[in-house]
């Protein structure tokens, strides 16, 4: 299957490993990955901060760049959520029904990574090997906007060598929330403190999630504390393979 990657501006710029791992994983599973070079940003930050008018050209741009793609994969629950639940709304708010329809059509072919693997490609065992103690943070938008359910956990449980430990209060927000982390930095930090406490309670060496933004937040807190637990994107774990397996 030909799969277009929407890497997201955040992963492109700050977390390219998550994008590279997504490509490696899908190619290992026998699929062809393309990267439409004109892609930029889904506009989630603009929408969620209230700048819907500024997001409008980004909505139009996404619909244009990916209009001919059969399946689009996004290594981010929140960006997928924005594309699926906000793009058409933004277009309609400014009276562009034609764009809203195009945005809905593209959104229907846009999948978060675990959705693509489990629902579209029908894989739960991706042949990964990752001999580490790992805990999984489900991220709010994957959990409640996309309803990915236990798909990421099903994928992780099939990883060879992994020591997967349950995260207490997993479904509680880490406190990122985009510009929330800056506008309400104190509250965000309090939420992060509790999330880090949960992560550290698991004694995991790795905290994973399907969203670089939440990981940037949790990871930023953990390294500040020299906590000894690192954050790794779900794609990177699923892309890991035993030596020589490639």
């Amino acid at each position: 299957m030909r799969i277009a990657l929407f890497v997201t501006c955040l992963a492109d710029t700050l977390f390219p490993d998550a994008g590279r791992a997504t490509v490696r994983l899908l190619e290992r599973l026998g699929h062809q990955v393309e990267f439409p070079a004109a892609q930029t940003c889904c506009g989630q930050m603009h929408v969620n901060t209230g700048y819907l008018h500024d997001a409008l050209p980004l909505v139009r741009h996404y619909a244009e760049v990916f209009k001919d793609c059969e399946a689009i994969v996004v290594p981010s629950g929140s960006c997928t959520g924005s594309i699926r639940h906000q793009h058409a709304m933004v277009a309609r708010r400014y009276g562009d029904e034609a764009l809203a329809r195009r945005a809905e059509a593209v959104a229907a072919r846009t999948y978060e990574l675990s959705e693509l693997l489990v629902d579209v490609l029908g894989v739960e065992d991706v042949g990964a090997y990752y001999p580490h103690r790992v805990t999984y943070h489900p991220t709010c938008h994957s959990l409640r906007l996309l309803r990915v359910g236990d798909r990421p956990l099903r994928l992780l449980r099939n990883v060879a060598g992994i020591d997967l430990v349950e995260l207490p209060d997993a479904d509680t927000c880490c406190g990122f929330g985009g510009t929330f982390a800056v506008k309400n930095a104190d509250t965000s930090t309090a939420m992060l403190a509790d999330k880090m406490r949960s992560v550290l309670d698991t004694q995991a060496e790795v905290c994973t999630a399907g969203d670089s933004s939440c990981l940037m937040h949790i990871g930023g807190g953990l390294t500040r504390l020299r906590a000894g637990t690192r954050t790794v994107h779900l794609a990177q774990i699923l892309a890991s393979a035993p030596e020589g397996a490639r």
């Binding site: 890497v7 994008g19 506008k183 930095a185």
Partner: peptide
């Protein structure tokens, strides 16, 4: 600074994803 009051920020990597892609796959589209 409100972010870095309590959290580290990631240092931009030496190579963005699209630079890597271009190096590996050449320019597409």
């Amino acid at each position: 600074s409100a972010w870095t009051a309590a959290r580290d920020a990631p240092e931009p990597p030496a190579q963005t994803f699209r630079q890597w892609w271009r190096a590996e796959h050449g320019d597409t589209r």
